[in-house]
Design a protein around this nucleic acid. Structure first.
Lengths: 213, 213
DNA sequence: CCGGTCTCGGTACCCGGTTATCGATTCTAC
DNA sequence: GTAGAATCGATAACCGGGTACCGAGACCGG
């Protein structure tokens, strides 16, 4: 599955949540389509691929969509995950409610700074990074979030791989070098901002040339 | 330009920076290609679209690539930007060095909490959100970063649009409703984590089925 | 009950992104 | 200096995601 398609599914899910909160029970493919900038055809194909069936003149049942898309993304499970790096970013992530929404259970925090070791964030104690491998191994944790400076991320990732971690959510601005089979999902904040810069430049130059196209 | 293509350019840039720090002066299209999971052909077409010329048996000059890709993304300018919401996430963003790397100059911070108003982060004073419109207007700021809870983001965005902001970098997990011509770049952290969940599920099921494909 | 309309499911088509290929150019080696 | 290898630039071929279309089923109004 291509990244674009995956993103569409996640956006469907976001919109479904909103619709459900408005009391809606069904959606049509065209309704989902306009929000995504695609056609109803594409949406129907997306849903068809998940074996989701709708009814003519009625649409799709929102509850069905939510369950099937969620189970495809495997966000209904509670995979244990550890977070390394209790800086401002780390704290923000710990305090957010995204973990359970994305199928994870944040079970451990690590940092190397004695000033924060022993404190707790959102009720989760911050452990000494020196004890990281043992804890990860004992708990069988296979996912980790790296909220660290770029210069420390590779070394920590290496240690975590040795301890059994097989998937990373990486906020450090480097390309992690990991063995085959280990997943790295990079969350490049910088690229979002660059994309904004590009879109601003494009809009401004388009407007300068006039709206002839 | 499609999102995928834009992402490739940004990844080229990231890799170029790394190569330059290693003392390299030129790159071949194939070198750039393998990192992106595409072919040399695609890279050559990407660079050709930017009127970048290489030399046979030598490759492209890294310095040229950096300048031309950077200018296409317009990240060499210093567009003033304001950040609203001095929570943990806001602080992390302020303290990061991404702003200048992406063509922005972070010039103002706002928050509604009296406890943080008047303090400073990275040398930038935190102003009262009540004075936001006036300051934005006076300084001619046209970009803003929203590091706020979802329930406050829309109201703040509305006020900023009225004050002249025409581009948003939005971290709140909602679809902002803005007038036509106003750019919203959503940085959906949640979706990165969901994508990781999906990739883990996919890897595990693929391995269970065996590596026959 | 029946025609009209709306929306789904499936199929065929299209377009543009990606790859493959080929000639041209430049560097290396002897 | 010449043969050979490497890499670019350009063009053609390919492929798959996206769209358009059509028949089928379901609700609505009379």
């Amino acid at each position: 599955m291509h990244r674009e398609t995956l993103q569409r599914y996640m956006n469907y899910l976001l919109l479904l949540t909103k619709l459900k909160s408005e009391g809606r029970a069904t959606v049509t493919s065209d309704e989902l389509a306009v929000r995504e900038g695609v056609t109803g055809s594409r949406v129907r194909q997306d849903l068809s691929a998940l074996r989701i069936l709708g009814k003519p003149r009625q649409g799709y049942r929102i509850a069905d969509l939510e369950i099937l898309i969620s189970s495809m993304l495997d966000i209904l499970s509670a995979k244990p995950v550890a977070l390394v790096g209790i800086g401002n970013l780390g704290r923000a992530l710990v305090l957010s409610d995204i973990w359970s929404h994305a199928g994870f259970d944040l079970v451990a925090l690590f940092d190397a700074d004695p000033a924060v070791i022993g404190t707790a964030v959102a009720g989760i104690p911050v452990r000494d990074a020196a004890t990281m491998e043992r804890f990860i191994q004992e708990q069988g944790i296979e996912s980790a979030c790296l909220a660290l400076p770029a210069d420390k991320a590779q070394a920590v990732a290496d240690r975590l791989v040795n301890a059994g971690v097989r998937a990373f959510w990486n906020f450090a601005l480097i390309d992690l070098d990991v063995p085959a089979g280990i997943i790295v999902e990079n969350q490049r904040l910088e690229q979002g901002l660059m994309a904004l810069s590009f879109r601003i430049a494009k809009r401004n130059s388009d407007q300068a040339r006039g709206p002839q196209d």
